[in-house]
Design a protein around this nucleic acid. Structure first.
Lengths: 359, 359
DNA sequence: AATTGGCACTCATAGTGTAGGAGTGCCAGC
DNA sequence: GCTGGCACTCCTACACTATGAGTGCCAATT
């Protein structure tokens, strides 16, 4: 087992290493921290820490650096949960003052988070869940394409293109009708029909309502085969209502990743590619487990993703609507200021929750 | 003046340097190209090129590399305008098959362009100009906030948050009315009033119509002071109709920038920051001059932007709607494959134009 | 006048050897 | 359990050298 002082030594190693970027030796520890014991004693403690696989020496006889496991212990037990500092608080407050459309709010939030932490930051789009249908608009774009726009009560707008062209490439539905033909009001009628039963209804129930419409359309159409396009549109609407936009992420701060490049042994491009493939990030978000305080932290090889072996992710949730949570996170080298970054992520999440909560 | 063969030598230097990443010397030129003269002769030509400031020697007595001016001459006179190759054509075609919402199309297009060129790519959002108003929806989000969603005929959706809270922080307009109060239909009424005169009207004229409404509202309200919130909303709608979304850009391929890092002497982080500040890119887009074939090319220090001194931008326009043009571009180190990248940018632009043209 | 081969010169690069220093493990003594 | 001492490891910086690619220039040739 590791002694009490042993843990203090680990804390010292992590903090010093994060600060100096250099392996930390026993002597520099006694110089920089008031341990009241000699370097030799520290060395004994370090030997124990190394046995426990919490620190490692890059070369025989150089200082030690924390392992992933060492960071894990540090984060779980040793990091102080300090609040954000004054200048950060000011930055967030100033930020609160402006407001504009959703895309803009998220873009600016993610940039704020990136600046506060000097890391790469990302914010997931708020979820539609628990919202109500405010409006649905169907727009005929071309003979074979329709745009469906769904507006929810909380202001989230979800749009979807629908291709109702038939597989053989004809631009009509076999009966010579064009989607957007003058005088043909089927889109308009369909919209009204859907809105009649969904307006003001919350999304989970609205999806069921639309499914019912779909069924009745299909039943009435079976014989005549007239409803191909209506069914195509209704399918998408159902999907649109059920889906939420949390599969979309905004990101900022690539420059910070490049700046700390020396912390990555060699694989920056794979890392950046993984990041641009949002799929990877979304999977990691989904897999992250959150501790009682709401933080989800994944360190180094704990990330099961190619290219992310030397990065840590600090994530938490914000209330994107009543009782529904989306996530935001900071990503950086394992060698990062966990305490400070956790505080910043927390603060920004609180701010976002407040923003959406007010609505 | 530079002789005929001198230009051929320049072409050889540019192509070889782009390929090998190393300064090219007289001997390697005669080895790799069938000039039919000796290295000494090439050296004489190179001396001339150096006098003209088209090439430069990094050190006394090493091979030569092209200057910005050299690349410029190469691009203007010497680069062959070859079409894209077969595999690229296939990639684009395959791409054409899928389709979904606007955000998605652009995100995938920019990724395609990035992959085709192995460079950083960006695509500007299509413009609303020359489109018609399809629908307008006003959604009360909170006592002091309204969301306005404008849908244009071509499927572009423009949303805007409106804060109609009064400066002193009261949540009503001084008369005790909440924005979204039950039974208060002012938003609904306002929407209908605007739609009545703008539906189907093209955007430039629609803006005027809304201004007229605003005037009449103001005239009627002057005495009673009842119309604060109506005026706030109308102001934003005018702005929303007049503005177009071309101030938004999607980007992809940061990894490519990092991968070619060796081509940048030292300033990758500033470059990445400049890129994330889309403002800089938009300015560059605006300043770029297009040649008769529609390409706008800016090389190295021709870019008047901090951090972009060692990059080139290849840009062209696509028809985002009838007679309205948005841009897309590729950005990379000056040492890039101009011919190939120009071809790719052209091809993708053609594809996008076709896509929007069909609508 | 253009081209060529020859030659002296420059300078980046890689490789080698050396000295210095930080840090370790271990041990005997307190 | 803590400490000082000591031998040992090994990374780093620095200087030095050899190598070779490439140049500029010039006199000779076509």
């Amino acid at each position: 087992m590791v002694s009490e002082r042993g843990l203090d030594v680990l804390r010292a190693i992590v903090t010093d290493y994060v600060e100096t970027r250099e392996p930390v030796g026993s002597k520099s520890i006694v110089d920089r921290h008031a341990f009241g014991v000699s370097a030799a004693t520290i060395r004994n403690d370090m030997a124990q820490l190394e046995d426990e696989d919490l620190i490692v020496a890059p070369h025989t006889s150089s200082g030690r650096i924390p392992t992933d496991k060492g960071y894990r212990v540090f984060v779980d037990k040793l990091a102080d949960r300090r609040p954000i500092n004054a200048t950060q608080r000011v930055a967030i407050q100033r930020f609160l003052e402006e407001s504009s459309d959703l895309d803009d709010v998220l873009a600016r939030t993610v940039r704020l988070l990136s600046h506060l932490t000097n890391q790469f930051a990302m914010v997931q789009y708020p979820s539609l869940a628990k919202n109500r249908v405010r409006h649905l608009e169907l727009v005929g774009l071309s003979p074979t394409r329709v745009l469906s726009v769904l507006i929810a009560d909380n202001g989230v707008v979800e749009q979807r293109n629908i291709d109702i062209g038939l597989r053989d490439g004809r631009s009509d539905d076999g009966l010579g009708r064009d989607v957007n033909q003058e005088g043909d009001t089927w889109l308009h009628d369909l919209r009204d029909r859907v809105l009649a039963v969904t307006r003001g209804v919350d999304l989970s129930r609205a999806a069921d309502q639309v499914r019912e419409i779909r069924e009745s359309v299909r039943a009435g159409a079976d014989a005549s085969g007239l409803a191909v396009r209506e069914l195509a549109v209704l399918d998408v609407i159902v999907e649109q209502i059920s889906a939420n936009r949390t599969d979309k992420i905004v990101m900022a701060g690539t420059a910070n990743l490049v700046r700390t490049e020396t912390d990555f042994t060699r694989n920056l491009p794979p890392l950046l590619e993984a990041i641009e493939e949002q799929v990877v990030l979304l999977r990691l978000f989904a897999e992250l487990e959150f501790d009682p305080s709401g933080m989800g932290i994944s360190i180094g090889r704990e990330n099961q993703a190619f290219g992310l072996e030397e990065t840590s992710i600090l994530s938490t949730g914000y209330e994107s609507s009543a009782s529904s949570v989306s996530r935001l996170a900071v990503l950086g080298p394992t060698r990062m200021d966990y305490s400070g970054n956790i505080a910043a992520v927390r603060a920004v999440a609180r701010y976002l929750s407040k923003m959406f909560g007010e609505d």
